[in-house]
């Protein structure tokens, strides 16, 4: 065999990181939450998640193949992530065909319309969720199915919204461990945090977005809580961080690469924006939960954040 000389511009080696590996890590990080959710809510969780993932992947493949007529992009696993996140944003009792519609909106409108991975301005899974929330409000807020010892058909967030004094009667350990009403992925704060630590360790995400979102929410809760009883308590801030989609949104949805800012400074502003809008909607808006809308609104602000918040140029003050 003869020697063949290769040539290319530098660098000649690569770190070995791959888009599909990053997406795989996100899916892996979501597994503890899926496991606890399945344990608490039953096998239907797996069924809904499987439907969501399968339809997301299928729609992406179909759109690539027949509408865009280009090489399929399902191998990057981003459709799988969208599918899992979409499922995590749904109540367990939702009919399967609504999930399919959600997947179609998420992939078809939220992602592929804009050119696919990397070019979508809004988080696809959130696009799907928000569409379903508006189109099927009853199915999307029916929390009765699945939970064996469910007290009522409402989530803690809506309970507290109309009776803030109840906050001191909550058992935070239940919220932490998984005994809480809500969407499939919101069940256990602990599982979500474990996944988040895994993502931080694998350098898939940085701390900036989750910490700024949760920090803003806590600060907001602290100030508002003080106006209720006149004393500063940990209860309201802690409640808001643990309840609803706060952790799911802060760790997994808001950190979506293409819809979040590119610089650390930008990420912090983006996170503060999401935290503040979430709390405003939760406390004074019509919906009990505001996370998805807050992320959606800040997604829209991402291009302008990227434009004005550039990284610190070496050698400048």
């Amino acid at each position: 065999m003869a020697t063949r000389l290769f040539a290319a511009p530098s660098p000649h080696i690569h770190g070995g990181e791959k888009s599909s590996r990053i997406m795989g890590d996100v899916v892996l990080a979501l597994m503890p939450a899926l496991a606890i959710s399945t344990y608490v809510l039953g096998w239907r969780v797996l069924f809904i998640t499987a439907v969501a993932v399968a339809s997301c992947v299928l729609f992406e493949w179909l759109i690539c193949r027949f509408l865009l007529k280009r090489r399929s992009t399902i191998h990057d696993l981003s459709a799988v992530v969208t599918g899992v996140l979409l499922a995590f944003n749904l109540p367990v009792g939702i009919p399967w065909w609504i999930v399919v519609i959600g997947a179609l909106v998420a992939i078809g409108i939220g992602k592929m319309t804009f050119g696919g991975l990397g070019t979508n301005p809004f988080n696809p899974a959130l696009t799907g969720r928000i569409f379903l929330l508006i189109a099927y409000p009853v199915a999307m807020t029916d929390w009765t199915t699945g939970v064996p010892d469910s007290l009522s058909g409402s989530t803690l967030l809506s309970d507290i919204k109309y009776a803030p004094e109840l906050v001191s009667s909550l058992n935070f350990m239940d919220m932490f461990g998984g005994d809480m009403n809500g969407s499939m992925g919101e069940i256990s704060a602990l599982a979500l945090i474990i996944g988040g630590i895994y993502l931080l360790w694998r350098r898939v995400i940085t701390w900036h977005i989750p910490v700024s979102i949760l920090g803003t929410m806590a600060l907001f809760g602290l100030c508002v809580g003080a106006t209720y009883g006149g004393t500063i308590t940990y209860e309201l801030p802690l409640f808001h961080i643990l309840a609803g989609g706060a952790l799911l949104g802060a760790i997994y949805m808001a950190t979506d690469y293409s819809t979040s800012p590119m610089t650390h400074k930008g990420m912090i502003i983006y996170g503060v924006g999401i935290g503040a809008i979430t709390m405003i909607i939760r406390l004074w808006g019509a919906y009990p939960e505001g996370m998805s809308f807050a992320i959606f609104i800040m997604n829209a602000a991402t291009p302008i954040i990227n434009k004005y918040l550039r990284p610190k140029r070496f050698g400048t003050k």
Partner: peptide
């Protein structure tokens, strides 16, 4: 050809 280019 005397070498093989493999860049952009």
């Amino acid at each position: 050809k005397v070498n093989h280019y493999d860049g952009t």
